[in-house]
Simulated scan of single mutants.
Amino acid sequence: MGLTDQTMVVNGVTRQYRVHVPATLSGEPKAVVLVLHGGGGEGMDVANTGQHPLSVFRSVADREGFVAVYPGGLADTGAAGNRSWNDCRADNTVSSGADDVGFLAALVERMRTEYGLPTSRMFMAGGSNGAQMTHAFAFNRADLVAAVATSSGSLPQNPKAGPCTTGPSRPLPILIVHGTGDTQMPWNGGCVADLGGLCNRGRVISAEATRDRWLQINGLTSMSPSQTVLDDNRTDAGPANRFDYPGTIPLQWWRLDGAGHTVSSQTVLVSPNPATGTQNRDIEFAEMAWAFFKARLPGTGASVSSPLR
């Protein structure tokens, strides 16, 4: 119980991940949620309580009775060798080149087998590069997850051939969160984390274009969303605007006015800084993601586009 470090070998490469099992869990967990770190030096350390907003998935897991899994990306080819994910960007020249879709697919299958769960109880969420990898996994292996959630991660302007270009094999419920003041994953699209001016991490389309692509995938382009505005914390850059596109395969979109790149949180607070901007503190990304996932669980009345094994 608690947080344990584990490994598995995929395509001859040893891969690491951390598993958080609630201490009070007895029997089958309600679900498994894979939580993907962003590109950078933190890697799986985003699971450390209080260190990163993504760690909040652990406290939510304790309360709700699901297992949180934190996979680790491999070092990229940049000077710092940061842990990152090889997602759908064809023009990311510092990517590790690893088969991260294959790794995550194998990890999902291991968790399904270990806990005896159907795919309808498997979910994935990520921030920044982890959000991009979540998109990539959804495009490549939509058959293995019931829903996904992303924070500050857009689709590529120059996607790889295959599913990254053509789209997923089936529609998928998705929650998307993005700040209008994000310069690392530019709200209006452009170079990703272009700190050195080389644009060597590739280009993405805008946050709104990313939303629109998923609306098309999920057959929601003619849907008028309902809007909810949350502005509980007046010390951040602006309110959180929630747009719900209901349907058989829903999309929930959060526009965080003025917010930068940092994952939104009410409990793990990150000070404003020139690189990542101002954190939105009106919502807790982990809580919003789990609420979205929980509504998709079997027995809640949610429907899916195709049978899940």
Results as ranks from 00 to 15, higher is better:
Gly27Asp: 06
Thr93Glu: 14
Gly72Arg: 04
Ser84Tyr: 05
Gly73Trp: 00
Ala23Lys: 03
Ala31Val: 06
Gly102Met: 11
His37Ala: 10
Ala106Cys: 05
Val21Leu: 03
Gly73Asp: 04
Phe66Ile: 02
Val13Thr: 11
Ala98Lys: 02
Arg18Gly: 09
Leu3Asn: 09
Asn86Val: 08
Arg112Gly: 02
Pro53Tyr: 08
Pro22Asn: 06
Pro71Glu: 04
Val35Asp: 12
Asn82Gln: 10
Ala23Cys: 00
Val33Lys: 05
Val10Asp: 00
Pro53Asn: 12
Ser84Asp: 12
Gly65Asn: 08
Ser59Lys: 11
Ala61Phe: 08
Gly102Ala: 07
Ala68Tyr: 03
Glu109Phe: 00
Met44Asp: 11
Gly116Asn: 04
Thr4Glu: 05
Ala90Val: 09
Glu64Gln: 14
Thr77Leu: 09
Thr4Arg: 12
Val46Cys: 07
Val108Ser: 02
Arg18Ser: 11
His37Leu: 02
Ala79Asn: 05
Ala98Trp: 04
Gly38Ile: 03
Tyr17Thr: 03
Val60Gly: 13
Gly97Glu: 15
Asp5Gln: 12
Glu114Ala: 15
Leu107Glu: 07
Leu34Ser: 12
Val21Ala: 06
Thr93His: 11
Ala68Asp: 03
Val21His: 01
Ala75Asn: 05
Glu64Thr: 05
Gln16Arg: 12
Gly65Ile: 01
Leu25Asn: 06
His37Arg: 13
Arg89Ile: 03
Val56Asp: 12
Asp5Asn: 12
Ser26Val: 14
Met44Gly: 14
Arg18Ala: 08
